[in-house]
Computed example of a mutant assay.
Amino acid sequence: MNIDLIIENKIAIITINRPESLNALNRQTLQEISVALSEAEKNLSARVIVITGGGEKSFVAGADIKEFADYNTKEGTKMARDGQANVFDKIENLRKPVIAAINGFALGGGLELALACHIRYASENAKLGFPEAALGLIPGYGGTQRLPKIVGKGLANELIFSSKMISAQKAKEIGLVNEIFPLSELMDKTKELANTIAKNSPLAITEAIAAINASDTEQGFEKEINAFGMLFESEDKKEGVTAFLAKRKPNFN
Rank of each mutant, 00 (worst) to 15 (best):
N2Y: 14
I3L: 12
D4N: 12
L5I: 03
E8K: 12
E8P: 01
N9I: 04
N9C: 03
N9M: 03
K10T: 10
K10Y: 07
I11D: 08
I11L: 10
A12F: 07
I13C: 06
I13A: 03
I14A: 05
T15W: 03
N17M: 05
R18P: 05
R18N: 14
R18S: 15
N26Q: 04
R27M: 05
Q28C: 03
E32V: 06
I33N: 07
S34L: 11
E39P: 00
E41H: 00
L44K: 07
L44V: 00
S45I: 01
A46K: 03
A46H: 03
R47W: 02
R47K: 13
V48S: 07
V50M: 06
V50D: 03
I51F: 09
T52F: 04
G53D: 07
G55E: 13
S58F: 05
A61G: 10
G62M: 01
G62A: 04
D64K: 13
F68G: 08
A69H: 12
A69R: 14
N72W: 01
K78N: 11
M79V: 05
Q84K: 15
A85G: 00
A85P: 00
V87C: 12
V87D: 11
D89S: 15
R95E: 10
K96R: 08
K96Y: 07
P97R: 12
I99V: 13
A101Y: 06
I102T: 07
F105D: 01
L113V: 03
A116K: 08
C117P: 12
C117Q: 10
R120K: 15
S123L: 08
E124L: 11
N125L: 04
E132N: 12
A133G: 00
A133Y: 00
A134Q: 01
I138T: 11
Y141V: 01
Y141H: 09
Y141D: 01
G142Q: 04
G143I: 02
T144C: 10
K149E: 14
L155T: 13
L155H: 06
A156V: 06
A156F: 05
A156P: 10
N157Q: 11
L159W: 01
I160N: 05
F161K: 07
F161C: 00
S163A: 14
M165K: 11
Q169K: 14
K170N: 09
K170I: 09
I174G: 10
G175N: 12
G175E: 12
N178R: 14
N178D: 15
N178K: 15
E179I: 05
F181K: 04
E185R: 10
E185L: 10
M187F: 10
M187D: 09
D188V: 05
D188M: 06
A194H: 05
I197D: 05
S201M: 04
S201V: 05
P202H: 01
T206D: 02
T206W: 02
T206G: 01
E207Y: 12
I209K: 10
N213S: 15
S215H: 09
D216V: 09
E218K: 11
G220R: 03
K223A: 13
I225H: 09
I225Q: 07
A227F: 14
F228H: 03
F228P: 00
G229Y: 04
F232M: 05
E235L: 08
D236M: 02
E239P: 02
V241Y: 07
A243M: 06
K249P: 00
K249I: 08
N251P: 00
N251K: 10
F252Q: 07
